[in-house]
């Protein structure tokens, strides 16, 4: 039996060496692999063999079949086998996805840093009342920020919490959350805020802020510093530093304004007018946010025992942080929504 296989193989090799054209190769395929081929004849012998022979002969027969088939394929020289070359230098097709606005992206970035620390995100309404926007935040009745020059008031019938207005900061959410939940709380709250500022390269009557606060029995100023440093290093770069400058806000005590070491020049001090960094004006630091320990008057206004609980709070302007991080020099670009602007921030 083995002999038959060997002879067949020899025959095929001889035939193959004689075949040059594709037609001849096709003919060989019929001759050796077709239904009436010699190989098939050998297959038909199998049923008559003993069990042991069946297994060996069958196996060898299959090996030969594969060998012939492979040899024929390799010899085939037709154009089908030749890969046609494509000019791959033509332009790519545009992808169909759109672009998230850079402001919402940055908002999400900021929130996610604090979510990582265990903060929850809570959103608040934009039409607020005087009590939530000012009084509860320890802002006295005659404070300049309550001026019509600094706050938009609504033509809505006043209720028991004072005039309706467009919130001038995201802090009213702090009041709403602290009034409705019992500590511990740790919340981050992004949203739109409004102030009657004429629109120019750095001002807009509508902009976005993020408010964050944590209240518990053991919250302290050191936590505030750590949480914000963690944020700055996650958001800007792992190498940045923060500088806490004492400041005054009615709703926090102590209060601080926070500067980040300049992300553009790396915080190099340089007072020479020609060489100094345009972002930090050569100071090496850029103001990014305000913060402090929540004033006990504010906790008390929300019905929280200020002897037992302490908290920190901070607020930052999203446009400002975005402009700083991405080198955007005009706040109006955010609200023009020019697709050529939006497309630059693929996120």
């Amino acid at each position: 039996m083995e002999e038959k296989l060997r002879i067949l193989e020899e025959e095929f090799k001889a035939d193959l060496s004689q075949s040059k054209t594709q037609e001849e190769l096709d003919a060989l395929k019929v001759k050796y692999l077709g239904r009436k081929s010699k190989l098939n004849d050998l297959f038909s012998l199998i049923p008559a063999l003993s069990r042991e022979e069946k297994s060996i002969f069958g196996k060898n027969l299959n090996i030969l079949k594969n060998k012939i088939s492979q040899k024929l394929d390799q010899s085939s020289n037709s154009e089908e086998r030749q890969e046609e070359l494509i000019d791959l230098t033509y332009p790519a097709k545009p992808m169909a996805n759109g672009y998230q606005h850079i402001l919402s992206h940055v908002t999400e970035q900021i929130c996610s840093v604090f979510e990582g620390l265990g903060f929850s995100v809570v959103e608040g309404g934009e039409i607020e009342d005087e009590w939530h926007n000012f009084s509860a935040l320890n802002i006295p009745a005659e404070h300049p920020s309550r001026d019509v020059f600094d706050t938009f008031y609504m033509e809505l019938k006043e209720k028991d919490k004072g005039k309706y207005l467009l919130r001038s900061h995201t802090s009213p959410t702090q009041i709403r959350v602290m009034s409705s939940l019992t500590p511990p709380v740790a919340v981050i709250s992004p949203g739109r805020v409004y102030r009657p500022d004429e629109v120019d390269a750095t001002h807009s009557f509508m902009f976005n802020q993020v408010e964050g606060f944590a209240v518990d029995e053991d919250i302290n100023f050191s936590h505030l510093k750590g949480a914000l440093l963690h944020f700055a290093r996650s958001f800007f770069a792992s190498s940045v530093n923060l500088r806490f400058r004492p400041h005054f806000f009615p709703f926090t005590e102590p209060s601080a304004e926070v500067d980040v070491s300049c992300v553009i020049c790396g915080g190099k001090k340089n007072n020479s007018v020609n060489q100094r960094c345009s972002v930090c004006k050569g100071k090496g630091w850029v103001e990014v946010l305000g913060c402090g320990m929540i004033h006990p008057n504010v906790l008390e206004a929300c019905g929280i025992n200020s002897r037992k609980y302490k908290g920190f709070a901070f607020g930052m302007g999203i446009e400002r942080l975005t402009m700083l991080k991405y080198g955007i020099n005009d706040i109006r670009l955010f609200y023009d929504n020019d697709q050529r602007f939006l497309k630059q921030f693929q996120v």
Binding site: V121, D216, A227
Partner: peptide, 20 residues
């Protein structure tokens, strides 16, 4: 303020509710 150390608060877990 610069002499006060920086540390991270241990925020206590809260029930997470679906939010807007």
């Amino acid at each position: 303020f610069d002499k006060i150390p920086s540390s991270l608060p241990a925020i206590k877990p809260k029930v997470k509710e679906p939010n807007s």
